[in-house]
Write a protein that binds this DNA or RNA. Structure first.
Lengths: 195, 195
DNA sequence: ACGCTAACTGAACGGGCGTTCATTATCAAA
DNA sequence: TTTGATAATGAACGCCCGTTCAGTTAGCGT
């Protein structure tokens, strides 16, 4: 046996990334072997190296793609309005997007330390970019006089941590719907910035 | 060479736990070998098994001890007062305690999945116990009419996530002192529950 | 000074790791 | 139908893993 019938790189490539994401999120990067990933995909371990130079590059690809898509999705949201409206959109967007991609979010928080310093810096830069989007809203609200925030940098970190925390406990079909959760979190965020 | 000069289990035992915590926090449980831990302690790998039945038990011991100490430390805090005062004490306690033990906190959030189901349940139970302490305060404030919270369970998770988030960015000697950070977070928490 | 016990070594066990590569089967264009 | 490119195999490489254990030395009560 060598090449399989019906095999195509446009199928195997995404399949590898999907299975790697699933397994990394479930067991952790270091605890998952290339052979496990290959097994989940349905190929031998050697075949993975047609799609990635090494294991770390596979992780980096997942994290980078996620961060790029996060930022792109936020930019695709409707802009404009006052700081109050923009903050509400950010809160609802963040919760929605992160719940839709729980595995990728989990990965990008847990597995950063498995990246080389250069790759780590890239992801950190993208995260900073995203955080700056929220901080800009808070600053604008502060200038407009609709928010009362002692420190916008701190408020940024506090709000993001609070929102991202939803991923740790939310379960589909639980007591509350996504919409209700978003409503309540928005209520808390709104009040916390004094609006 | 066999037994080393000046060797005592009361010294080696804690040293192993300390080095394991440091290494697990830095590189992740799965990425750290027993030989690395032994090397950091200054013994051979086999010696570790005089102090732990296996690698996972070492991790569990660290997590369990941390959670026990967290809960004990909270119970040692002065009680009494109205919900407003108790919430402030909780916020300041959580930030202070977690910053004091950053490595243990990091571990107990990141490495839970490396525990067996039984051990996982134990740590989860202790976490739940701690969270319930906060929830009781929020409920009391709700009943007293000093808080305005749509859902106390959600508010509990939101506040804990927000507070624990401090650990991800706070650096000693940075722009803000611990005390200032605690002040600002308390301000945001207070407002978010409508007090 | 002796003997018991506690503390540790160092080698070994079987197994899994990430990665490479010669080889082979399939696909798609000519 | 031939042919070159593509997608995969499967064996092998050297290395490190968690764990065990017989043997050895240091500490210490008697």
């Amino acid at each position: 046996m060598a090449r399989k019938t019906g095999s195509h790189s446009e199928i195997t490539g995404p399949k590898i990334r999907a299975e790697a994401q699933r397994l990394f999120a479930r067991h952790g990067f270091a605890a998952v072997s290339m052979r496990q990933i290959a097994g989940a995909v349905g190929v031998q371990a050697g075949a993975l190296y047609l799609y990635t130079p090494d294991k770390e590059a596979l992780l980096f690809d997942l994290l980078k793609t996620h961060m790029d898509e996060l930022i792109a999705a936020w930019h695709a949201e409707p802009g404009g309005g006052d700081a109050h409206a923009r903050l509400e959109r950010f809160v609802r967007f963040h919760i929605r997007f992160n719940l839709e991609r729980a595995e990728a979010v989990f990965l990008s928080y847990m597995e950063l330390r498995n990246l080389s310093p250069e790759n780590f810096a890239v992801i950190e830069g993208l995260r900073k970019t995203y955080e700056t989007e929220l901080e800009a809203i808070l600053k604008a609200g502060q200038d407009e006089g609709v928010f009362l925030i002692p420190d916008t940098k701190l408020a940024t970190m506090a709000i993001i941590a609070m929102l991202t925390g939803v991923n740790t406990w939310f379960r589909e079909g639980g007591r509350l719907s996504r919409a209700t959760v978003a409503d309540i979190y928005w209520d808390m965020v709104r009040k916390s910035v004094g609006a």
